[in-house]
């Protein structure tokens, strides 16, 4: 029995090591960095300060105070959460029927449709965003067509580029597969006899959906929502390219701190808040999933 237990730990060693090296350690480094001073030329200042011949630990709460000094960061966080929630909801509404349709179609069609869902992954993420920039561009076909129609009914021309709409469209476009795939995996496993049984016992098609399929698919919805919500929360590439000046999200500010302002400690503070938010969302999701 003891040998067996020992074996079990050995098997979990690689994933444990992975988590330790690539998650726990960087998080710890980031946490420590959030209490340090920024270096004179970027990066971090030394740990210790030489003061009249003595070494003193040089840590500060300044960075965290700065977070709370203005409400700008709170507003940015809330805005990012808003985009993440909106993207998740739109992906859910669009992805659910798609996943259901794929899960209920014949085996041959199913593989083909799944391929179509995964197809965008075959080209680079940035390239695909640039493609959207072309589509949304003021001289692009979509904008011209839209403005042509709006002009007919006497409404002013609109720009699609650098707007929340453009951002949202692109966020949904990029993250839809992350909603569809876990949902499909869940829906595909449903025992169809259960739907027959529900019908047999008097449930019409709407009640079959809302009383059987929907509640049983909640774990899939939770998984998909987490997979969409978290990357959107920290997203910076899409707001950078499509968001314009008003489109920045918290991810952009973090990137800015590390790359442009060279203020690593404050970047670490913002990253910590983002990480804690993400972990909270995952915990909330798994708590909702555990509840019957």
């Amino acid at each position: 029995m003891q040998g067996k237990a020992w074996y079990k730990y050995l098997l979990s060693l690689p994933p444990m090591a992975y988590l330790l090296i690539f998650f726990a350690t960087p998080t710890l480094i980031m946490l420590l960095a959030s209490f340090r001073y920024a270096g004179e030329y970027g990066g971090l200042a030394p740990w210790y300060l030489h003061e009249s011949g003595r070494l003193t630990l040089d840590l500060t709460l300044e960075n965290w105070q700065r977070l709370l000094e203005t409400d700008i960061y709170l507003r940015l966080f809330l805005k990012s959460i808003g985009y993440a929630v909106a993207t998740t909801l739109i992906c859910m509404v669009m992805g659910y029927p798609l996943a259901l349709m794929i899960a209920r179609s014949g085996r041959k069609n199913r593989d083909f449709l799944l391929l179509l869902v995964i197809l965008p992954f075959w080209s680079n993420f940035l390239v695909r965003i640039y493609a959207w920039m072309i589509i949304f561009s003021p001289v692009g076909a979509l904008t011209r067509m839209l403005n042509g129609v709006l002009g007919l009914i006497g409404m002013g021309p609109v720009t699609l580029m650098y707007s929340p709409t453009a951002m949202l469209v692109c966020l949904v476009y990029v993250h839809l597969p992350f909603m569809v795939l876990p949902l499909y995996a869940n829906l595909e496993k449903h025992d169809l006899d259960m739907l027959d049984a529900a019908q047999d016992l008097g449930a019409g098609k709407w009640r079959r959906f809302w009383l059987i399929t929907w509640p049983l698919s909640l774990p899939g919805i939770t998984a998909g929502s987490i997979l969409v919500f978290i990357p959107v929360l920290g997203m910076f590439a899409i707001p950078d390219l499509l968001g314009g000046t008003n489109g920045i999200m918290i991810g952009n500010v973090i990137k800015q701190q590390f790359m442009e302002s060279r203020d690593w400690p404050f970047g670490s503070v913002l990253s910590m808040v983002l990480t804690v938010t993400a972990v909270a969302v995952v915990l909330l999701g798994s708590w909702l999933g555990r509840r019957r």
């Binding site: 025992d191 027959d196 047999d200």
Partner: peptide, 15 residues
Amino acid sequence: EQRPLHTIFQNYALF
């Protein structure tokens, strides 16, 4: 759903 008869499925099909 409108027939006044019910089925017992091989795998029970409980919800």
